[in-house]
Every structure is written in C-alpha cells, then in structure tokens.
Amino acid sequence: MSGASDRRRAEPQGRSGGVNRPRNRSARGETHLWVVQRLTAMLLAIAVLVHLVMIVTAVRGGLSAAEILSRTRGNEAWLVFYVAFALAAGLHGAIGLRNIAAETIGLRGRRADLAWVAAGLVTAGFGIRAAIGLYA
C-alpha cells in the first residue's frame, strides 16, 4: 500500500523533475516529426498529383531538354512549386525512413532523428538545386 502511495506521490515530482525529462523531450520530438510528416503529406498530395499528370502527358511523343526548359525557364510559379515540392519530399521521405529504421532495426534517439532530418534537408537541397537549374 505504502509503495503504491509513494509512487503516486512521486509521480508529479518525477514528471517535472530530471528523471523523465528526456522522455518528455523525446515525446515532443516524436509529435513534431509526426506533424511535419502529415503537413508534408498534405502538400505532397497536390504536388505529386500535378507531377504525375505532368509526367504522363509530357512523355507523349518523347521528351526533349528544349521542351522542358521552355516551360520552366524564367517561370517563378514553377520555381516555387518545385522548391516547395523538393523540400516537402526530402523531409517526408527522411521521416518515413526514420520510422522504418526505428521499427525494424531499432535505430532510435535524438542523434538518429537529427541525422535523418539532415539527410532530408540534403535531399531537398539536391532537389532545390535541380529546380533552380530548371528556372535559371
């Protein structure tokens, strides 16, 4: 009995104290990643649909660099679209890989999360470089 009551008394202290702080931070980080994953999913739902329609229509009769660049060169709307697309895809993919790695090989923790976010940003950087190349 006394053990249970001790635990009850100790719980609020534990929550605000140092022992559980890493767990709270980890839960907060988990929530942030979940929100980013869902927000990027919503953005990607539109972007991927546009991209797919573009792919299946543009390949008709063959693709050429001149044809692609005539559509994208100096076009700010496509630049904004592709930059947002690349950023969302890079982050969405990296968080997805992070979730799979955590579930399958147990790769977890703050360092791993930071590494995945960095990988996502590097991937997005490659995409943004390509988007600028299409625009400039």
Binding site: A94, V122, F126
Partner: peptide, 11 residues
C-alpha cells in the same frame, strides 16, 4: 521506402 531511396539519386 523505394521512393525515399530513389529520391536523392533522382534529384
């Protein structure tokens, strides 16, 4: 998984 692995290569 496959798309996420392909994406950096594609970009």
């Amino acid at each position: 998984l496959l798309l996420a692995l392909f994406l950096p290569l594609h970009f």
